[in-house]
Design a protein around this nucleic acid. Structure first.
Length: 424
DNA sequence: TCTGGGGTCCTAGGACCC
DNA sequence: TCTGGGGTCCTAGGACCC
């Protein structure tokens, strides 16, 4: 009986979600695009085989995709979020603890001898397929870093049937694989660190595993030191079973057409600040810092401008009126009129639970202004997000810069009007 | 013409205090 | 002319992740 960690993740998650509701997509090359239909963020195996890369700008590969009969979808985060919750619920039944690590993957604590662990991994895979309908891979190992690695092995070796439990593997085979897989494929080693490691002759996972930990600590960081320890079987990355409280809430989007005037940017900030305030209320959090940002395209030749400023709020708040007023006022000051902004954002940080003394708006009274937020929230919950808003945030028609989603699938699971109809 | 969004953790350096 | 040392808190920026 040993304690082990399983890392379960959904294969090509967004594409797999689309396929659940549109089985015609099975077996075909499919890609899902980022917000604003900007670039490719998810690809089916068939699309990967045709050479489509993650992050490829859509406009560059559009022709190629059409000529190969690829299916394109805009991202549908409501659908993916709902499907994610279903997968996580199933996984929670199989672990002694669970840490939801991202929208499509979760660590869970598992126990057993090598034989039992292998069977459990297969059982989990079948359970998710049966109750949610998406394919997963399972990696089982003594540490998180190794569980990630095992998952990687499961994914890249079809004959393993989507599971890989390190306890059942021949150690020599593990060593062979680790000497072939580049160190940058490892969880926690990105391209920057990879370049520096290469300078020291460390290019494979096996090289890093054999490196001197104190030397790594000195030359790099405690983060990479932990990775080396974990590769050698010593768990040292803590699990956060209960969701750690959020540290920040960000609402940031690129625009479908550039924003150049103060009037339009005021509209953007007004809407984004109100979205941020709604999220604060949903999460029961109050912000003490407000950051606003905007940016011109990094790919354009025109005048570059990246205005950004952080304001200390007078007291913890979630008030949409105050946040809107401050965001709009600050942006007026720092933006460069005439520059072609392609994105903007509002970040709320210094988050905390309900404070004893909160500030509500520009008046001193308090209760009435708190009321405004509550009423906005209630109306949105009942009639939808676009039903009400303050100032420019209440525009009934979409502004010219708002997000483009030309290839969206319906909200199959979260919108009554869009639930699929089954005819028997 | 058109290149995503939302997070986390760690570190270095400055301000401030005794 | 000489000009400590140690601690905490905060922030900006780097690196990474999906």
């Amino acid at each position: 009986m040993s304690e082990r960690i399983a890392l379960v993740d959904v294969n090509n998650f967004y594409v797999s979600c689309e396929r659940v509701f549109d089985p015609k997509l099975v077996g075909r090359p499919v890609v899902v695009l980022s917000n604003n239909d900007g670039c490719v963020v998810a690809r089916s195996q068939e699309a990967k085989s045709l050479g489509i890369t993650t992050g490829a700008p859509f406009f560059q590969v559009k022709q190629f995709m059409q000529s190969h009969g690829m299916v394109v979808r805009s991202s549908n985060y409501e659908l993916y979020g709902d499907m994610s919750a279903r997968v996580m619920e199933v996984l929670s039944r199989y672990g002694t603890w669970q840490e939801v690590y991202s929208i499509d993957e979760s660590f869970i604590g598992v126990q057993g001898n090598p034989d039992q662990l292998g069977k459990l991994a297969t059982t989990i895979r079948a359970a998710v397929a049966r109750s949610v309908g998406v394919p997963v891979c399972v990696g089982v190992a003594p540490t998180k870093t190794l569980a990630k690695f095992a998952n990687h092995v499961a994914k890249h070796n079809a004959h393993l049937g989507g599971v890989c439990s390190m306890d059942s593997m021949d150690p020599q085979l593990v060593a062979d694989i680790q000497s072939r897989v580049p160190v940058t494929d490892l969880w926690g080693v990105g391209s920057r660190t990879g370049t520096r490691l290469a300078g020291l002759g460390i290019t494979s996972i096996a090289d890093l595993k054999a490196a001197d930990v104190t030397d790594i600590r000195k030359k790099f960081s405690v983060v990479l030191q932990r990775t080396v320890l974990e590769l050698n079987g010593t768990p040292c990355i803590a699990h956060n079973e209960e969701r750690a409280d959020k540290q920040q809430i960000m609402y940031s989007r690129s625009f479908s057409s550039p924003v150049r005037t103060i009037e339009e940017m005021v509209e953007v900030m007004s809407i984004y600040a109100q979205r941020g305030a709604s999220r604060l209320m949903n999460d029961g959090l109050w912000a003490t810092l407000l950051t606003i940002t905007a940016g011109t395209s990094r790919f354009a030749s025109g005048e570059a401008s990246f205005p950004s400023i952080t304001l200390k709020l007078p007291a913890p708040t979630q008030d949409p009126i105050l946040l809107t007023r401050l965001a709009v006022g600050a942006m007026r000051e720092i933006m460069l009129p005439g520059a072609s902004y392609v994105r903007g954002g509002v970040i709320l940080s210094g988050l905390q639970p309900e404070p004893e003394q909160a500030v509500f708006g520009i008046f001193d009274a308090g209760s009435d202004e708190k009321h405004v937020g509550d009423v906005l929230g209630a109306v949105k919950a009942r009639f939808g997000n676009k039903s009400i808003g303050l100032g420019s945030g209440g525009l009934a028609t979409e502004p010219g810069w708002s997000m483009k989603r030309d290839y969206s699938s319906p909200k199959f699971t979260t919108e009554w009007a869009e639930i699929p109809v089954v005819k028997a």
